[in-house]
Design a binder for these strands. Structure first.
Lengths: 171, 171
DNA sequence: CAGAATCCTTGGAGATACTG
DNA sequence: CAGTATCTCCAAGGATTCTG
């Protein structure tokens, strides 16, 4: 369990010095060199919270509890199965708490734990970033697609065809 | 379907306050009600950058460029196919730049664009969070699994078998 | 209402071979 | 080296049904 806590794994083979000096950062030395191995626990956790549903649930779930159905309504597009599964995982990771009220119509409240709240802040930053830069991304996409179209006009260079049909609506 | 408590959030174009407006704030102010609909562009982008490979690539890619092979080595476990695809997407979104050096052995450098750098900071925060809290998560998981084992021993309470272990469809 | 169990489809993703 | 093009496979995930 203590494989990559604060160590610099440095598993990049130094056969070729492409630029040993890291970024311009001199304060944060491990700015980029965390443990990237698949079996690393950080990777494992990251792969889990980097899940679209987990991310959305945490982003939407705030300190006050939400019921199952409320969550399902909030997280648009999620199926009951995925919501349950996602919530179970998050509960297991200690990020959300599950409170069952033994009423006649069952009522279950989900809320962020203190640990989950700290993650919520970080994820919220990601959401905010997206909101802020969505126009830039849209512009970049349009430019890319335009270039793409021109390039494929002269020579057949197919790659990433999602050009003029961005909306991928699956029935 | 009450529309008083939970109605569909509207498009909030980037004029909102980016500052921390936690849940303890007033209710009418939808600090956490960004557009959650699937067809929303924010969701679209979020679903993309919340991809495990995209996240890793951006996290590892820093301001200096990395070659294709270097990236493949860094992002442990990624296949060539996925790396190419991920890079194309990120390039299309204007997050990474692709520089081809027309040398005899082809050399392609990938680097973060200014826009990508801003995202890198946010994602790095996520990585840092994970590094910091991995032990807490591990503890929570152990506790959950312990409870789980006890619960399923006494009464029928099946749910989420240890996710780290492969599928266990008990007949 | 909250969830468990089941069935079934899609596409994500690895492996391999080929090219410039 | 840096891709592209295929083939294949498996599991993520949706839809449906059935309970307490």
């Amino acid at each position: 369990m203590e494989e990559g806590t604060s160590e610099f794994p440095r598993h990049r083979t130094g056969t070729e010095a492409v630029g040993p000096a890291p970024c311009v950062d001199d304060y944060a030395y491990d700015a980029r060199q965390w443990d990237t191995r698949e079996d690393c626990e950080v990777r494992q956790i990251l792969d889990r919270i980097a899940d679209k549903w987990s991310l959305l649930v945490i982003a939407l779930l705030d300190c006050q509890g939400l019921r199952f159905t409320e969550l399902r309504r909030e997280v648009d597009g999620i199926s009951q199965r995925m919501l349950t599964k996602t919530l179970r995982q998050l509960e297991r990771d200690g990020l959300v708490s599950r409170t069952v009220h033994p009423t006649v119509p069952p009522r279950v409240d989900y809320a962020l734990t203190p640990l989950g709240s700290t993650l919520h802040a970080t994820i919220q930053a990601l959401v905010t970033w997206t909101e802020r830069h969505q126009s830039e991304i849209a512009t970049a996409r349009a430019a890319y697609d335009a270039r793409e179209a021109v390039g494929s006009a002269g020579a057949a260079a197919p790659a990433l065809e999602a050009a003029t049909t961005p909306v991928d609506h699956r029935a």
